[in-house]
């Protein structure tokens, strides 16, 4: 019997070694295929389009290598990038401030209601994004009670909420809030409550416990949540369009109008490529600084 073991093991490893990677690649294939078809190829096409040159006819462009498209796009719409990132950044910040206590409450005090509370968080997303944003127009209407209340307090610089940057940031915060709450909840829920007990036993104040124990352990959730909020919010233009005014337009509107109306595909593509690129840089700096690249 013992003599048999070496022979069987000596035969088995090569088999396993040979099969393992192949299975791995096979399992990866659908995902990689998806990425290739729906990300890599479109991105390359987008990039090539962004360098095309006009032929004179409207909406027809010839292959080329016209870096000037980027300069033109940036000089004309640069301020919209800045505005988009400011709005998206503010919305992310507000979403984090609102979501963290909520996620904390659901994770630690939710008890048997946890599931229900989570459903309540997601429930609004059952209705269309567009519809919910439209609803805010009614809620924030100039002649409505909300605006009336704040006007009575005299805190509105323009005397209204709708069609101001306040409404746009509020709309972005609202619409992307669930994407902040869920990852936060996921990481807080995993947190072992005994660690908090231990921290208390070691005479840490609640603030110190939060700072030294809870917050660091929830960082993966914070990073995931902020990314899931910030990235789509910077490219969003529905909120700016429906809740904003002509002075609050975001970069998405510029891409849309260039693509659909002017049929200026190179400029629209250049704007899109730059948006992706800027987000990529911002996000990689952010991830590096929060030291959690292995978690995202």
């Amino acid at each position: 019997m013992p003599a048999l073991i070496p022979t069987s093991t000596s035969e088995a490893p090569p088999q396993v070694a040979a099969r393992k990677p192949r299975t791995g690649y096979l399992l990866l294939a659908p995902g990689m295929g998806w990425l290739a078809v729906f990300f890599a190829i479109p991105f390359v096409t987008l990039f090539i389009t962004s360098l095309q040159v006009p032929t004179g006819a409207s909406g027809v462009y010839a292959p080329g290598f016209d870096i000037a498209n980027y300069g033109e796009a940036l000089s004309q719409y640069g301020h919209l990038y800045i505005r988009s990132f400011i709005y998206a950044g503010l919305a992310t910040l507000f979403a984090l401030i609102i979501a963290y206590p909520l996620a904390y409450f659901i994770a630690f005090r939710g008890g048997q209601w946890k599931g229900l509370l989570l459903v309540l968080v997601i429930a609004p997303t059952f209705a269309s994004f567009l519809l919910r944003t439209y609803a805010w127009r009614t809620i924030l209407a100039d002649e409505g009670p909300v605006t009336g209340f704040f006007n009575a307090l005299g805190v509105l610089p323009e005397g209204r909420i709708l069609s101001t940057s306040i409404a746009v940031v509020a709309g972005l915060t609202y619409n992307f809030l669930p994407f902040m709450i869920l990852p936060l909840f996921a990481s807080l829920d995993k947190l072992d409550p005994r660690l908090i007990e231990a921290s208390n036993d070691l005479y840490a104040s609640p603030v110190t416990t939060f700072r030294k124990v809870v917050w660091p352990l929830s960082l993966p959730g914070v990073v995931a949540g902020t990314l899931l909020t910030f990235i789509p919010a910077s490219g969003d233009y529905i909120n700016a369009q429906l809740l904003g005014s002509i002075t609050t337009r975001m970069i998405g509107s510029a891409i849309q109008v260039n693509f659909i109306q002017f049929r200026d595909y190179p400029i629209a593509s250049a704007l899109s490529v730059m948006l992706m690129f800027i987000i990529l840089i911002v996000v990689s700096i952010y991830i590096r600084r929060s030291g959690t690249e292995d978690l995202v």
């Binding site: 127009r137 009614t138 100039d142 409505g144 069609s163």
Partner: peptide, 8 residues
């Protein structure tokens, strides 16, 4: 039209 109706 909607904006006229809501008074915005």
């Amino acid at each position: 039209i909607n904006a006229l109706e809501t008074g915005d």
